[in-house]
Nucleic acid binder design. Structure first.
Length: 231
DNA sequence: ATCCCGAGGG
DNA sequence: CCCTCTGGAT
């Protein structure tokens, strides 16, 4: 197979490879244990700088104590802090959880909103979290861009942007909306296991033959640049 | 040391 | 744009 030369050409093959490498849709690929939008929203807030496995250790207790968003809205902050402490950033995350819950109760009648514009108004909910909730909990188009998705998108030559919002725009324009959510998770899985931040393991990467950064010419150019750091 | 699906504030 | 928030695993 010839190495694709355009972003659209690469996107099509990258998309197919990722889908067969990590089969499933966004909901089945999501590693955060949850039942419904409220729980996923809370779990995603907790997942910042924390493994999903760690989040899954605390959410059973959190959801047992606060079964509905109305319960979390009136929770005692110190109680929530105690439950979620091991996920890190526990004071900020508690403020986000309570603020999110109050906003959902006060402004949306206890129903987690589906639109990106509404979701990002919730405390502690940024664009990435909003897109996770949209794609995983609601099955709607949404392409969460985190550090992995940005890095792999650039290495794979699907975008040249650094700004996550611009990366999202570029990737969304290259892929069918029904693939956005799963694509994001599949990029993250490859980013953690193979295409790591420092020293990507191109030798074992199933996408190396289509990846411009794994092109022998590109690899040679980088090696030369390292040997002669001055110009 | 580095990584784990960030968001908000100054 | 940079800083801070925070704990656990490897």
């Amino acid at each position: 197979m010839a190495r694709p030369r355009t972003p659209a050409g690469r996107a099509k093959i990258v998309d197919e490879r990722l889908a067969s490498l990590y089969p499933g849709d966004a909901a089945s690929l999501c590693a955060l244990d949850h039942d419904g939008p409220y729980q996923l929203l809370a779990a995603t807030i907790l997942s910042a700088q924390c493994t999903d496995a760690r989040v899954n250790l605390v959410t059973p207790q959190l959801f047992a104590r606060y079964p509905a968003v109305e319960d979390l809205a009136v929770a005692e902050p110190s109680d929530v802090e105690e439950i979620i402490r091991s996920t890190g950033f526990f004071r900020a995350k508690t403020a986000s959880l309570l603020g999110m819950a109050r906003a959902v109760v006060d402004r949306y009648g206890t129903v987690v909103p589906e639109s990106l514009e509404d979701l990002v108004t919730l405390p502690g909910v940024g664009r990435k979290t909003a897109n996770v909730v949209r794609s995983v909990a609601f099955g709607l188009p949404g392409l969460p861009v985190d550090t992995h998705v940005g890095r792999l998108g650039r290495r794979l030559g699907l975008t040249r942007q650094e700004d996550p919002v611009k990366v999202e725009h570029d990737l969304c324009s290259l892929l069918p909306p029904r693939r956005w959510g799963a694509f994001s998770i599949q990029m993250i899985l490859l980013g953690r296991q193979v295409c790591v931040a420092r020293g990507p393991r191109c030798g074992i990467c199933r996408l190396a033959d289509v990846c411009p950064s794994a092109d022998p010419a590109a690899v040679g150019a980088r090696a030369t640049a390292r040997r002669r750091p001055d110009r």
